[in-house]
Nucleic acid binder design. Sequence first.
DNA 1: AATGAATGAGCCTTCATTCAT
DNA 2: GATGAATGAAGGCTCATTCAT
Lengths: 211, 211, 211, 211
Amino acid sequence: MTNIKNNAATQETRRKLIEAAGEVFAAQGLHAATIKEITSKAGVNTAAINYHFSDKFELYAAVVRRALDDMCGQKEYHAKELTGTPEQQLEQVIFEMLENTSDPTRPSWCTTILAHEFSQPTAALDAVVEELIRPQVNRMNHIIRQILGNDATEKQILQAALSVVSQHVHYSYNHQLIRRLQPQAFDQCTWQDMAKHIARFSIAGLRDMRK
Amino acid sequence: MTNIKNNAATQETRRKLIEAAGEVFAAQGLHAATIKEITSKAGVNTAAINYHFSDKFELYAAVVRRALDDMCGQKEYHAKELTGTPEQQLEQVIFEMLENTSDPTRPSWCTTILAHEFSQPTAALDAVVEELIRPQVNRMNHIIRQILGNDATEKQILQAALSVVSQHVHYSYNHQLIRRLQPQAFDQCTWQDMAKHIARFSIAGLRDMRK
Amino acid sequence: MTNIKNNAATQETRRKLIEAAGEVFAAQGLHAATIKEITSKAGVNTAAINYHFSDKFELYAAVVRRALDDMCGQKEYHAKELTGTPEQQLEQVIFEMLENTSDPTRPSWCTTILAHEFSQPTAALDAVVEELIRPQVNRMNHIIRQILGNDATEKQILQAALSVVSQHVHYSYNHQLIRRLQPQAFDQCTWQDMAKHIARFSIAGLRDMRK
Amino acid sequence: MTNIKNNAATQETRRKLIEAAGEVFAAQGLHAATIKEITSKAGVNTAAINYHFSDKFELYAAVVRRALDDMCGQKEYHAKELTGTPEQQLEQVIFEMLENTSDPTRPSWCTTILAHEFSQPTAALDAVVEELIRPQVNRMNHIIRQILGNDATEKQILQAALSVVSQHVHYSYNHQLIRRLQPQAFDQCTWQDMAKHIARFSIAGLRDMRK
DNA sequence: AATGAATGAGCCTTCATTCAT
DNA sequence: GATGAATGAAGGCTCATTCAT
């Protein structure tokens, strides 16, 4: 209440640092990223990281937390009511997932940072799993259970969910390799195209499981 | 009778180094892994890396190549003729892929290393992508083209191939995360179960694309 | 009053490093000299070289520049107007050169470093040859051109300049070898004696070239 | 007498090594030169140096010795009788010196190796000085004493000798820097031109000293 | 509150040398 | 006698961190 100005300046510096660190950590990874690159990109002093955060790793943790907030905090989509038949709901979810990882208004490093966490888990992974992934898994399983009917076993639901989600994950996280292998076809394919395809492909697969 | 060849010792040292490096790189990542940890795990001198490979990165490249070789290169199934209808061939290929990544004799670090490379390719992948991955892509595209028929566009073939392959990739490479989220269901599910499911799910999806 | 400027400490550290490096480089050569020896002699940390200069070689380059600066750069005689006939001017220049290299306040490693550079130039010399050596060459050539007259060819001027300058260079840079060969005669010979001799010897030679 | 063939092979290997080492040591200096570069240039195994010579330094010493032999052993010039007046003798000596350092039939590294020794004396320098330089100094002093007459003091003789010799030394050892500063004039100037110039310039200077 | 200067630990790499064959 | 493989010591350099201001 007293020294708001100072506090504001501090917050601003922290924000700049997280933003810069997000980009650098996304591009290089936790270890390969250097303090110098981050601070020079943020336009602050080398010692600022140790001053504002206490550690390089603490900064990283703050970045992960920020990515999480961006991914599931501000987006209201998982509060948004799904409507229509279960198959229509599945379509909506698939669209949301691809839209989310393709959203150009969100700092592009958020996805990458989280992908890093998946392949090289740090202490920050626990939060990611529980806060971000678990709810999505639950929602997906709920929809699939409705589509497959009450006879479906847990094993079947898992398999079905994996089949649906995997298409999103592979497309969204391995796009560099995919584009490299088949550049023309890949570049013709917007995320909307892909969402449509995944939805149709998946629903056909799910219907077949019901037989 | 056992190891008489002139450079048998060399080959053995290289093998030990790649093995140790695979584990360490998988656990720590390219940058965080240290030469010291690798060489002490391999039981050789620090300078051996520079002697046998010329670089830390060249060693990493050799590890990536070895992982891909193990995965799709030297196995004899590759020469094995695919038989039956295109759909049956697809089934065989899916089976092969999962069998291969689930082979318990293959070092467990292979999938981790490759998962990194797929999402964050380095120059090491460049060196082998054409040689090892491209042929598999071509084979898969060939089968899918047959299934979809001559009217299928390149874009459709890419989408279809991604849908099929993604199910394999996600299941094979994200074991740990999947088990963590749904331990019971996952442990009931052998790779054979999964192969059967992926084949059926995929064929249903592909058939739907033909309509 | 003494060292208040903000970066006075920095300048002081740089100075200490160059001083120490000069001694070590002169004694051991660029390659054989070690960072550790230099920094411990300067009383600073190993990383200081990378901080203040960026490289071992950049430090060496700074040493070479300092040696040349000391030799011909910052001294005020350079601004001092040469007076009298061209022959008198030559005398003054010869006197200046020997006075300068014989200046006991100048670090003794300067000549050694420069002797190396002259016979085996590195990139360090490239950086300063135009700035520091060229002007001296021009001044010398200008005087000699006046002495030899307008008929003199460029080749003659080069030969004449080499004859004059070589006497200075050999005397100033090969002290030790000369003294070793003829200690008594050498010790009788002050630099003033030598300057007088070189001037007379050279003027006689130049006059002969005019015939 | 018994195993000449082996001995011959050994001698041949030693010869190849010294030849290769001469080039590399001349180009890089004792410390910067690496065993690997020398052995690969000589086409022999890495261990050959430690086998034939016991040390890197012993190889260097052998190279210096070989350079010395080449410089003053095979050349009969300092046994060759000088003829004519003292001034004519001086001319002959100056020609010999420049011819010698410019002789294209002698491995070019000999001069450079010895130049290294001058600026970075090793244990091998003593031999160089006594065997190679001292005799030349004596001969030069003898000639100059004759030219200057009996009144000349030792100091004068030293000064005169330095003036003469310095022109040779500077031209022969610092030619890289000289060419860099004045390429056109330098390239017009053969060593014969230079020898002629130095002789004339020096004789004029010496005559002037007699007055 | 914030920073430029300095540090020490550790990493990758190189190199002369040795060992086993 | 000669060599390919392997080694240990040391060097240059980088980097996160701390200190003095």
